[in-house]
């Protein structure tokens, strides 16, 4: 990481973790995969569902999970109802497009709602994020968002995610994971 990237990483980590999320730095693909397997074992996860990731990382991850006998749920985009398939997984793994350090948010860009379900339905969500893609401030996102909308003239959904699903609707007591993930991990890649 450059010094600016490191500064952005630290700010992002500080804010995201204040919102009950977890942020890790992985120097290479191997470290990233280890991060995932550790989370799977600590959180006693049994089934993972994967969105498309960086090809090299995706291959490493799949191999490693296979070696450890963690079942990977292959989502068959062509076989409805897809939501029921994804709902069987307790871990969703996907890639974030960018992140905002100032507020502690990752930003997901999708053109298929199945990919959104990967970050919404399972009990635990892990997002991969490139260190170079952490923006210092929210307002820095405007031109990026504009470009994304322009490059998808038909449809796209952009979601800012700031930690796990939360509610305080009963007696104002904080509870995580009421509908969406209870755990929200971000693995920042050295890129």
């Amino acid at each position: 990481m450059t010094s600016t990237q490191s500064e952005n990483f630290n700010r992002f980590k500080q804010h995201y973790e204040k919102l009950a999320g977890k942020v890790y730095f992985a120097a290479n693909s191997n470290e990233a995969v280890q991060c995932v397997t550790q989370i799977m074992s600590i959180s006693k996860l049994t089934k993972a569902v994967l969105a498309p990731l960086l090809p090299e990382l995706e291959a490493d991850l799949i191999n490693q999970l296979r070696d450890l006998n963690f079942p990977i749920l292959k989502v068959q985009l062509n076989r409805p109802p897809i939501q029921h398939q994804i709902n069987e997984a307790d871990l969703g793994i996907s890639a974030a497009e960018f992140a905002i350090a100032e507020t502690g948010a990752i930003v997901e860009v999708t053109t298929d709602d199945a990919l959104r379900l990967i970050s919404s339905l399972p009990r635990v969500h892990i997002a991969f994020l490139k260190a170079s893609q952490i923006l210092p401030r929210l307002k820095d996102a405007a031109s990026l968002l504009r470009d994304i909308f322009h490059s998808h003239p038909q449809n796209c959904t952009i979601t800012f995610i700031s930690g796990p699903s939360r509610t305080a609707d009963i007696e104002m007591k904080l509870f995580l994971g009421v509908h969406g993930p209870r755990e929200s991990h971000v693995i920042v890649l050295n890129r």
Binding site: P80, I82, Q83, D112, N155, T159, I161, S165, R166
Partner: peptide, 13 residues
């Protein structure tokens, strides 16, 4: 926690 921008409806699979 979640802020979603919907610009057109996406397919589901």
């Amino acid at each position: 926690t979640y802020v979603s921008f919907f610009a057109g409806r996406s397919p589901l699979g």
